[in-house]
């Protein structure tokens, strides 16, 4: 059987048996893919330094089942060197992908956004916009129609002056009257997110939106990297 060739990033790996790893990777062609890297942990193996997160890879995998075998892997460019908060943010993206990605479902757009996001993180650019854009692009690709420009329920464009509420099955819905409550957003912020026109207030709204929308997908188990990030910032 011909090996499959994939462009991928490692999300996570666990030790398996004496000298092997059980690896979860994110590939452009197949979404999340799991494989066994045999013998890689032994002291003489050269692939150890390649099978790390944030290293663009070309993987050659073999096997018919969901759990493949690693035949070979090559670097597909230099490893992205993340530091400080950017490193914790990168771990957050990995945890998010590991939780939300589906097996065997091509995700080329998310993959290129991930690659782009990591590059920006490695260049020490402002972290929050990178994370928000990636979260929104992931949600859209996963099929959660996230539209910052239209109110689907009323079939109209978002109005900068009105207030909108997020509803899981309908998206942003204009609220009757002008009463505000904690999960409502002003139209101007939604439009600013669509245009990637970030200000502190817009970023705060974007963060709230991403939490709200991700919450039902992530379930009860909180993201550990988020905790880590917050603790790291508070030190």
């Amino acid at each position: 059987m011909q090996p499959i060739e994939l462009s991928a990033y490692i999300l996570h790996k666990r030790e398996y048996r004496e000298t092997s790893y059980l690896v979860d990777a994110f590939s452009a062609e197949m979404g999340k893919v799991s494989f066994i890297a045999k013998g890689v942990r032994s002291s003489k193996h050269n692939l150890k330094s390649l099978l790390q997160p944030f290293q663009p890879l070309t993987l050659r995998l073999q096997g018919r089942h969901e759990l493949k075998n690693l035949q070979d892997c090559e670097a597909n460019g230099a490893a992205l060197h993340l530091q400080d908060k950017a490193l914790f943010s990168g771990l957050y993206l990995n945890e998010l992908l590991n939780r939300l990605l589906q097996v065997d479902c091509a995700m080329e757009q998310v993959f290129s956004d991930y690659h782009h996001g990591l590059q920006q993180l490695s260049q020490q650019q402002a972290i929050e916009p990178i994370l928000r854009l990636f979260e929104f692009s992931l949600l859209i690709e996963l099929g959660y129609g996230l539209s910052f420009e239209q109110d689907m329920a009323h079939g109209e464009n978002i109005d900068p002056q009105s207030f909108y509420q997020w509803q899981d099955d309908q998206g942003f819905v204009r609220m009757a009257g002008i009463s505000q409550h904690k999960n409502c957003f002003v139209g101007a912020h939604l439009l600013a997110i669509a245009k990637e026109d970030w200000s502190t207030a817009v970023l705060a709204s974007a963060k709230k939106i991403s939490r709200l929308v991700l919450q039902p997908l992530l379930g009860r188990k909180p993201l550990k990297s988020r905790e880590l990030f917050i603790q790291g910032v508070n030190l």
Binding site: L11, H12, E95, L223, S225, E227, L228, Q231
Partner: peptide, 10 residues
């Protein structure tokens, strides 16, 4: 070591 995916925190 810290590994958020494995749920290992500080």
């Amino acid at each position: 070591h810290l590994s958020p995916i494995d749920g290992i925190g500080p």
